[in-house]
Design a protein around this nucleic acid. Structure first.
Length: 334
DNA sequence: AAATACAGCAACCGCTGTTAG
DNA sequence: TCTAACAGCGGTTGCTGTATT
């Protein structure tokens, strides 16, 4: 140990650089080249620590630095690389000539990240985000029997059911439920966020949404996008995470089955219209404005472990949250 | 016009890995 | 092999300009 920051030395200046300091540093490096940062300040006549000089040079004064607004191509590259690499800003910077890691990091945090969040995209995983109010706690309850839920597939939308089983398996300590889930659904367990395989989900639609944040998501079509991979190939895919997908499940056309009566009823309950196979997505994926129970961020299940209030609010948005009345008894379904 | 909130960004902090003596 | 300095990296802070009330 015993490594105290060089800036701890008394008499060394901190804070914003002046033009005079920039000039001194630039002139010195032009004559002697960068490096030897420890001795550089004294030789250059600067009351700065070497680290501060190095940062000033690498992030601002270097002649090959490109300043100004990020282009479409640059922003697209950042999103793609971040999707694959995560917060490896220095690595990302090597793919953007003239841009520093610090500049890219700042641009990500102040622009791209916010817009992704606003549009319901997790800036960490680059997947659409889901907030399932209280569902996980219900599924975690001791009285909850997963096998019963798995038997109501004719009543409930298969994808919703799938999500429910996923949550049950990922959050429950009940190994029996986990095994049951795996055997019935044949999809991988949700991964720890730190172990996630880097994903690449940059879409034309996403770019449009970033540019014009007015995304109106239809529940029945919000996950169908034109995907563009690094090779420039385009394909029609579902934006749901792979663990929520199952080619064996044929999704009904909800847009043709929604009835005004059902849409007005935001409670999670089966339709009484005779055909129980018809399930109203709107009745599930809606948080009624008139709800007397305000959304409680602490009760929202967050797959990706995001923490900030504004993110929670944004992700929940109007797109993908639903309310389950406290009075709901799953046994009533059976 | 003043106060406040917000956004953007430069700079700092602290940690880790590398290198030289 | 050990130690200290260097260099790099990612996260965070705080200043400044702008927008809003």
């Amino acid at each position: 140990m015993g490594r105290s920051p060089c800036c701890d030395k008394t008499g060394l200046k901190k804070g914003p650089w002046t033009q005079e300091e920039d000039l001194k540093l630039t002139q010195y490096i032009q004559m002697h080249g960068p490096g030897n940062w420890r001795t550089l300040p004294e030789k250059a006549g600067l009351q700065r620590c070497g680290k501060s000089c190095r940062l000033r040079w690498t992030n601002y004064l270097r002649p090959d630095i490109k300043r100004g607004r990020f282009s479409f191509e640059e922003e697209e590259t950042i999103i793609q690389l971040h999707s694959a690499l995560g917060n490896k800003w220095s690595t990302i910077a090597t793919r953007l000539p003239g841009r520093t890691d610090n500049e890219i990091k700042n641009y990500w945090n102040t622009h791209i990240r916010k817009r992704l969040i606003k549009n319901g995209i997790d800036p960490v995983t680059h997947h659409p985000r889901l907030n399932l109010m209280d569902l996980s706690s219900i599924l975690n309850s001791a009285s909850f029997n997963l096998s019963n839920l798995l038997n109501i597939q004719t009543l409930v939308n298969p994808q919703v059911l799938r999500l429910a089983t996923l949550l049950a398996a990922s959050s429950s300590s009940n190994q029996e439920n986990k095994n049951l889930f795996l055997n019935n659904q044949n999809i991988p367990m949700i991964q720890n966020s730190s172990e996630q395989t880097p994903s690449l989900l940059v879409t034309n639609q996403l770019w449009n949404d970033i540019q014009t944040p007015h995304m109106q998501v239809n529940n029945s079509q919000c996950f169908s996008e034109n995907l563009v991979n690094l090779n420039g190939e385009t394909s029609q895919q579902n934006l749901l995470p792979s663990y929520l997908m199952d080619s064996s499940i044929i999704l009904p056309n909800y847009s043709e089955q929604i009835t005004p009566q059902a849409s007005e009823n935001s409670s999670f309950q089966p339709s009484n219209s005779g055909n129980n196979n018809n399930f109203d997505m709107d009745s599930i994926f809606q948080t009624p404005i008139s709800s007397s129970t305000p959304l409680d961020s602490t009760s929202m299940f967050n797959i990706n472990g995001s923490t900030t209030e504004d993110e929670i609010e944004s992700y929940c948005g109007k797109n993908f949250s639903f309310e389950i009345p406290e009075s709901l008894e799953f046994d009533d379904f059976m």
